[in-house]
Design a protein around this nucleic acid. Structure first.
Lengths: 165, 165, 165, 165
DNA sequence: TTTT
DNA sequence: TTTT
């Protein structure tokens, strides 16, 4: 179908340390369990309520897996952008089940640390993307997006000046 | 948790007509089945591939349900903004299963038709939100967002002029 | 136009303390200056580069203004969801200029603190929205989105169980 | 800054045909003028109101420029994902001005056609991304995101079955 | 299993 | 003007 979008944006905390596995040909896959929660005040009782939602995140991007491995721990707060994917599987007792996951793979996937705990995901030489077999992926924040060198409209452009407001 | 975000954005097509039920106290709940798909060219074979993902959408917003009822049919293209929610249930054979749904309820939920088929979902008197028990919800597009009457900065403001580029 | 979306999502830091003004009829308007930045490694020189973008944010939502007033300070990290708006104004020397701002107003606007600094924006009795003249607005995180009481599909639903993965 | 996000999502219509220029070294740059609009009913007068917002979009991605060139015309409806950027320039009369644009460049930029007019933006050999000097970019929809071949968790996986709800 |  |  031309014209479809499948995007999930989460800001939440890791409920436990990341799990990192490798495929047979050596590519990393990271699994995160991320909590988001919402709080509200009950209209009738006036009580404060909270509801936590747990999200299964699967990362098929080599540079993002590196960041996960190096920087993320239980409790870390992250911004994540990925896509929904529902997988069918058969459990131990032979029952067919479905699991919906947020997949970070290729373009338009991002993982950004929101804790001060690390140096910014640095190190990864994104933009060079060493020919890994995974689609390249939005690195921590947006490293490989080169800044616009020339203005978008052919008019004079003094990029380095800051905007005064 | 302060500081969490749980957001899903989909652009896709209804795989079938919406299903609308009512709670015992008369509130509507709409279920949509939305397809998104991605296409890519296989690196090795060069073949064109396509993969479709199906999303279960549940709408707990009265005005959005009205729009669904009035305007949406199988095949319709929509923009949807909601939140992920995983529900546990026991199927007919007594097996516990989970279902992950995109919930449209309250703030920061939106449904916008992207077909030319309707007049814009109008009609709903959003902004008045007749005290329904559901959280009010982002209407078709953004009806109740009143335009900014005065500029954000106290400077002269000629809002009605259009911007010429 | 039926079917349009105008959405901005920022995660960044306040460059200075918020500015809060009031309209003649007493409604608050908050202005934030938010920095986002991206870093990348220059392909040729190998140098680390950084580019900061400054965003002008205008908040026309009474509950969000309260949160801004109570909790946000220079340096605070926030998640913001709003809409783009370009305003025309005439500067001191009579020159017509345009200013593009991210407006938080009404539905589908959110401000969430991402620092541990505060108690979560709590306190605000969102969902009751005391008849203010501003469109109600997504509170800190998503307070007023009441959790789904009944499952979306009429099957058994045990909402309070947690999902084990 | 580690941990920042700068994202704009628009669904709107081209106000005029795209303008495509080339840099001195031959790389394409496309400019789009996109309208979004919101409608609401005036609380007092009950009148239907509409406000249109115009967005300047600049595309620095070679494959996206190709799609723009081949498929987009005045009136086309598109989904766009990019980043905000404010540029300073000096106009003809020597006055310094600022222009805020939505830049599509590199990762986490997308352009998806929402009209039925084309076959899906296909053609572009995304995923191979012929070493152009621009950051690669999210193609029409999400072409280069290879589907997940193996499940995210090592359990049985029957990817090709569709999910029946 | 997180976080406030 | 922030942050790393």
């Amino acid at each position: 179908m031309a014209g479809s979008v499948n995007k999930v944006i989460l800001v939440g905390n890791l409920g436990k340390d990341p799990e990192i596995r490798r495929t047979q040909d050596g590519r990393p896959i990271a699994n995160l369990s991320i909590a988001t929660s919402e709080t509200w005040r009950d209209k009738n009782s006036g009580e404060r309520k909270e509801k936590t939602e747990w999200h299964r995140v699967v990362i098929f991007s080599e540079p993002l897996c590196k960041i996960v491995e190096q920087y993320l721990k239980k409790g870390a707060k992250v911004y994540i952008e990925g896509a929904l994917q529902t997988r069918k599987y058969t459990d131990q007792s032979g029952v067919e089940k479905y699991s919906t996951e947020i997949v970070l793979q290729g373009f338009n996937s991002t993982l950004t640390m929101l804790d001060g705990r690390s140096g910014g995901g640095g190190g990864g030489n994104f933009g060079d993307e060493p020919g890994g077999d995974f689609g390249s992926s939005g690195p921590v924040s947006s490293a490989p997006r080169r800044p616009v060198a020339a203005g978008g409209s052919g008019r004079n452009s003094d990029m380095d000046d800051d905007i005064p407001f």
